[in-house]
Design a protein around this nucleic acid. Structure first.
Lengths: 347, 347
DNA sequence: TGCAAAGATGCAAACGTTTGCCTATTCTAA
DNA sequence: TTAGAATAGGCAAACGTTTGCATCTTTGCA
């Protein structure tokens, strides 16, 4: 079907090996020959067969991208397209292909990844999530297969390359913002505690509280998958406390939108009644009502750096494990305001 | 590095070809031998090298998925993760891998696709968008390479397999819903007219208007990329008309959310002042305020069908071109209401 | 008992590259 | 003039499979 290197060789009157070297731009081939061969390639519409190449080089020019389980709605989070955009940009530059892997269950995902690495389909893998005792991560680690995590590994943090934000710092800073506005009762809403990112953001939140001499109350913390019925109940409880929070640190913009909606049902408005800050700065955060004060974690860069880092690791097997921290930036918008007098008196 | 078929053969005391046939579960191999070989495979931890296999079979078990240009924010639309989820599910079942392709510009995307097909990286391609005179589509079509479009091709509709909704019907039906609520002045807000989906939804909208004896006014139609500054201006204009619309058909849920926000700035509330219906039923539509009345186009199924259809085409080269219509369903929620008296008198 | 048919397995070529090593030609310099 | 280096290119093996065909056993049946 396709035209092969041999046909090009014949057309150009050289040996296949010469054509191969022309493709690789090997200096041992004279400029004149190169020109001739290139013409033949163009004339015949030649394109190298990557499978054959992969076979002998035992390296595909491809990297696997592993998404979290698609069972939950988390996948609908614009985080993923955006990080993919970053990965894709540098992959394209470096002439790498992207192999995607998802599945409904963790088991399915693991299968997919195993197919990828055992079958020699990819040279390395990017993990788009980081959860406690993750099978996929364990598998890659024990296979000693090149991979990098977007986020922060829960174990082996020094031997696993990862690119992350300073989530503790970011969370601390944005919580301080709330404190600076006079809030004293500040709640935290986040996803599963198995997610490293959740843990870090709680830590930062608590650090800020502590540093300001504010009490850390367990009942101010709610963990919910993604605003499903269970989530509603939790938020409802939070605002049924004798002393409900006046400020909320929320781990994700999309959650914020859900919470704002829910609060409105209770007759509570943002930012008049409760101030909200969150994370990620997805596009919706700008467009929603009110626009969200949120920390921009630079998702695109997260992806780009991860891809760059992975390729370095692939090309040099004993590149040391790296930890790359991409800077965040707080976007001040309309979802927070100074604590109102009456409410502050209440405290 | 990896263990090869030869080593397995040696371990099992058979020829490589026998091992190969065991992998393929060829009936010519006796059950006893199969068992022995399988044991050897397991013991040695054998996994076939897909590149070698692809080379001789000249078929990778992979399909390419082409996303639209990531330059605009459209990629942040949950449509894509969802359709990917559908594709991924059946791909996983059929043991196909997914190769992703995006790019900032159309040129970049085309490059990516060419690399995919020329390099023999994929057996077929799914296009996740359909726009007028699209280079990628033209390329695939003239190469006679197996592909299917999610959406509706603008040209060669009978020779290009595609899976789509009845967007004309859906749009007509949802517009009729608005009309049924007493609305007489109904606007349409959608994306680029180059997108087949936009055209269809306009058509349905106009059919409903016409059938109800309502005038079709050009000034009621606005096309905007995605709620950028230009979009704001257009919506502003729309509501500065002497007779502004009381109902809006919007081509995408995310747009709806933006529009609702914008209207609020003008002191207009949904659904009290203007009723809104839109398309897609993304998860946000349920959670936003007010919850959106929208047509559920069953995005997951769109993806699943596309993948299934593509694989059929791959496995049987002269499978005829198909057109698959997945049913829609209108989700009635809170973004519409009966036209208020005063307003209807105005007309 | 003999022989064809069926059953089970092996041989080797082929897929399209890359690359280590060899060869032939041209240069350089003593 | 010639040995040796430098330059340019070719040969053939190797990568790990699949598969058409050949081969060797059995088996069944007359």
């Amino acid at each position: 079907m396709g035209v092969t290197i041999k046909e090009v060789a014949k057309a150009a009157g050289v040996a296949p090996s010469t054509v191969s070297r022309v493709i690789a731009d090997n200096p041992r081939i004279s400029p004149a020959t190169k020109k001739r061969v290139r013409k033949a390639m163009k004339d015949l519409g030649y394109h190298p067969n990557v499978n054959a190449r992969s076979l002998v080089r035992s390296s595909t020019q491809a990297i696997g991208v592993v998404m979290p389980s698609s069972a939950d709605k988390a996948l609908q989070n614009p985080f993923f397209p955006e990080v993919l955009r970053g990965i894709s940009a540098v992959a394209h530059d470096l002439e790498y292909s992207l192999l995607l892997s998802t599945g409904e269950t963790e088991e399915e995902i693991l299968e997919g990844v195993q197919r990828m690495v055992h079958g020699n389909r990819v040279d390395g893998v990017i993990l788009l999530y980081s959860r406690l005792r993750d099978k996929v991560m364990e598998f890659l680690h024990e296979q000693n297969f090149p991979f990098v995590i977007v986020g922060k590994p829960n174990e082996n943090i020094d031997t696993i390359s990862h690119v992350d934000n300073d989530n503790i710092g970011a969370s601390k800073e944005i919580t301080q913002h709330l404190i600076g506005l006079g809030h004293r009762c500040i709640g935290f809403i986040g996803g599963s505690k198995d997610l490293a990112v959740t843990v870090d953001r709680i830590t930062g939140y608590e650090q800020a509280l502590q540093q300001a001499g504010l009490p850390i109350k367990k009942e101010y913390r709610v963990h919910t998958e993604f605003l499903k019925s269970g989530g509603r109940k939790a938020v409802h409880q939070l605002f049924s406390l004798k002393e409900p929070p006046t400020g909320l640190v929320i781990s994700d913009d999309l959650m914020s939108i859900g919470v704002i909606n829910m609060l409105e049902e209770f007759g509570l408005y943002v930012p008049e009644d409760v101030s909200i800050v969150s994370f990620n700065n997805v596009y919706m955060a700008e467009v929603t009502r009110p626009p969200l004060t949120t920390v921009d974690i630079n998702i695109y860069e997260l992806g780009a750096q991860a891809c760059k880092c992975l390729v370095e690791k692939i090309q040099n097997k004993n590149e040391p494990a790296k930890r790359i921290i991409v800077p965040f930036e707080i976007k001040h918008r309309m979802s927070t305001q100074h604590l109102k007098e009456e409410t502050s008196k209440r405290a």
